[in-house]
Simulated scan of single mutants.
Amino acid sequence: MNKIAYTAFVAFVSSVLSLLAVNALSLAGEERDADELPLITLDELAEHDSAESCWKAIHGRVYDITRYVPDHPTDEAVIREWCGKEASEGWDNKRPGVPHSPRAQDRLERYLIGRLERSDAAPWEAVVVESVADSTEAQEREPSVDERLARALLGLPLDGHYRGVFTDRGSIQINVTFDLRDGRIHALEYRHLAYRGVDYLALEEGDEGYAVLLQHRQIAERLEGEPVTRIFALYEPERVVDDIDGFSGATLRGGKVISAIRDALNRGVYSWP
């Protein structure tokens, strides 16, 4: 009986060691093949800009994350924003100044499919080296702490271009884009504004609901140049917009606009000025 148990134990250990060896060889093969990955142009990348086929480029490497989209912990609209694009900025700023974790990086590598070909044919590694050199020279000229880093450490929003959404039951109702400069809102626009199947951005004067579109436009106008904290006034919309054509301030649902703007701030800078 002991002989049988011993034989089974040896067989089990041998199987485990074999699996580990195969896995190690597989990983080594992946490392070797990384430098031989196919080149993917920006035009090819841009063709895969949906949840059904989502590719994104991060620091010169291209990933097909289509299979991961349904498992992403945040709303699908968040990850769709980066499909078909160079997404290093979003990857390095999961929150302002805070990159994705090493664990997320390990998971990302499972979806590696190629290398991004720059339009000027310059290798991405050279761009990184030049960027580091420029940063070093700047520090030698100016010994003070980088302003963006200081703001991030203090939990303050960084200057830059932002995008954010408000969704309800998987449907995007509001998608905003705006700039922050010195903590003030500029150029607020709506990329999407809809409710119960009505696309408010497509309405014309005289259409039912057009007054609500005008109210949202007033928000954009009256937040121009205001501190970002001004968005909380939208909890009482009548303080920001006019009562147009019998529509009360409550019709506005200002909380949705607040949520979209806060979503943008939580996601971090979409692009730098």
Rank of each mutant, 00 (worst) to 15 (best):
I244R: 05
D146I: 00
L265E: 02
A104Y: 03
E52R: 13
I244G: 06
M1G: 11
V212Q: 06
R110I: 02
V69F: 08
P96A: 05
E205T: 08
A211T: 09
D179W: 04
V240T: 12
A187I: 01
T41M: 04
V16Q: 13
P143H: 10
V212E: 05
E76Y: 02
E224A: 12
D134R: 15
G114H: 05
A21C: 09
V128H: 09
S53D: 13
S50Y: 08
S171A: 13
S53G: 02
E204G: 15
S135K: 13
A138W: 04
G114L: 06
V62G: 00
L20C: 13
G254L: 00
R141S: 13
E226C: 08
D71E: 15
G255N: 12
V212I: 13
S101Q: 04
G197M: 02
F9A: 14
Y162H: 09
E147H: 06
D33S: 15
E189C: 05
A220G: 06
Y195K: 11
V22W: 06
V69I: 11
L108Q: 04
E86L: 08
A57L: 01
V198L: 03
V62P: 00
V240E: 10
I4M: 10
E81R: 15
Q173N: 14
S135F: 08
E125A: 13
S259L: 07
L223E: 01
A250F: 09
A34W: 08
E44P: 00
N93E: 00
N175R: 15
R253A: 15
Q218K: 06
T251W: 10
E208K: 14
E76K: 15
A5G: 08
L19Q: 12
G183E: 02
G254Q: 03
E76F: 00
D199P: 01
R103G: 10
L153S: 10
E142A: 10
R217P: 06
Y111A: 11
L156G: 00
Q215A: 12
L149T: 10
E125L: 11
P38W: 10
D35L: 14
I244E: 08
T251S: 14
Y210Q: 06
E224K: 09
G155M: 05
V176P: 01
N23D: 14
Y68H: 10
L180Q: 03
